[in-house]
Simulated scan of single mutants.
Amino acid sequence: MRSRTKALAENQIAALWRLDGALREKTLWKMLYESAARADELLCLNVKDLYPQGKRGEITAKGGATEWIHWQSGTAQLLPRLIARRTRGPLFLTDRRAPAGTPTLDVCPETNRGRLSYRRAEEICEENTRLLANPLASPEGIEDLDGWTLHRLRHSALTHDAEGGTSTPMLLARSRHASVRSLERYARPGVDAVARHVAERDPAARRRT
């Protein structure tokens, strides 16, 4: 039976970072988790939207509002390699040249490659995480099973923040939700948080200390 919570456990996140994936995917997944942004927002980023020195980026959120996302050292270490010497165009690119008729804003003028789509990014994430999501599955049947979605990284980041005691105002700022009620989905503690809670209240452990 699948877990009811959408948040990944901390050991699952750690296993994801150990995957031998492509630089583009590593950067996207790390940025998703560290920024707690929506995947479509990150995929719409252009190189010019990034402010590496401040570990932040300017995005267009729901409704067309301009907002900021912030990342940590993991993303900061990967971004220079992903960008290389590019100074414009989409941040996350396809592996091939953009087909004729692709909107100019979705084509890198320096490489002629197109912007990576949400559909393709989601497919790659699911394909690469099937074994992590189904550790007991046989290799023969793995192709028929689901992997992890991009959204689970955002959900995991916000859930782990809530478990760590992050304040409601900060969670609202991180998630960029308009309503406190929207945070309820992240308030359900995950497996690791419950395990720590039980262990900390174990009478035997208290006697040992």
Rank of each mutant, 00 (worst) to 15 (best):
Cys108Val: 12
Leu43Arg: 03
Glu140Ala: 07
Arg115His: 03
Glu41Ala: 15
Ser138Val: 05
Arg130Pro: 03
Arg96Phe: 09
Gly165Ile: 06
Arg97Leu: 13
Arg88Leu: 08
Leu132Ile: 13
Pro99Glu: 06
Leu79Ser: 01
Glu122Pro: 00
Glu110Thr: 06
Gln72Pro: 00
Thr159Arg: 04
Asp49Gln: 03
Trp148Cys: 04
Tyr118Leu: 14
Pro169Asn: 01
Gly165Leu: 07
Thr75Tyr: 01
Gly57Arg: 00
Ala162Met: 12
Arg97Ile: 09
Ser117Asn: 11
Leu45Arg: 12
Thr168Gln: 03
Glu143Trp: 05
His155Ala: 13
Asn134Leu: 04
Asp95Phe: 11
Arg113Phe: 00
Cys108Gly: 08
Asn134Cys: 04
Trp68His: 13
Lys55Gly: 04
Gly165Lys: 07
Pro135Arg: 08
Ser138Asp: 08
Val47His: 05
Leu145Arg: 14
Leu93Cys: 09
Cys44Tyr: 08
Leu43Trp: 08
Leu105Tyr: 10
Gly63Trp: 04
Leu45Pro: 01
Arg96Asp: 02
Thr149His: 11
Pro135Thr: 13
Ala100Asn: 07
Gly114Phe: 06
Ala61His: 13
Thr111Val: 09
His70Tyr: 15
Tyr51Lys: 13
Ile83Cys: 03
Val47Met: 10
Arg113Ala: 05
Pro109Asp: 04
Ile83Asp: 10
Lys62Leu: 07
Asn46His: 14
Arg56Gly: 06
Gly63Tyr: 03
Gln77Leu: 15
Thr66Tyr: 06
Ala133Met: 12
Glu126Arg: 15
Leu158Met: 12
Pro90Trp: 06
Ser138Phe: 05
Arg85Ser: 12
Ala76Gly: 12
Glu123Gln: 12
Phe92Arg: 11
Glu110Gly: 06
Leu93Ile: 09
Ile69Thr: 13
Asp49Phe: 00
Glu140Asn: 08
Ala65Arg: 15
Ser156Ile: 09
Asp144Tyr: 11
Ala65Val: 05
Leu136Pro: 00
Ala137Val: 13
Thr129His: 03
Pro80Gln: 12
Leu78Val: 09
Gly141Pro: 02
Asp40Arg: 10
Ile142Lys: 02
Glu127Cys: 07
Asn128Asp: 09
Glu122Tyr: 04
Ser73Gln: 15
Asn128Ser: 15
Pro169Ala: 02
Ala76Thr: 00
Thr75Asp: 02
Asp95Cys: 03
Leu150Asp: 12
Gly74Ile: 05
Gly101Met: 00
Leu82Val: 10
Leu136Asn: 15
Lys55Asn: 13
Leu50Cys: 06
Ser167Tyr: 04
Glu143Gln: 13
Leu82Trp: 01
Pro169Gln: 01
Gly57Lys: 01
Asn128Cys: 07
Arg130Ile: 13
Trp68Ser: 11
Asn112His: 15
Arg56Ile: 06
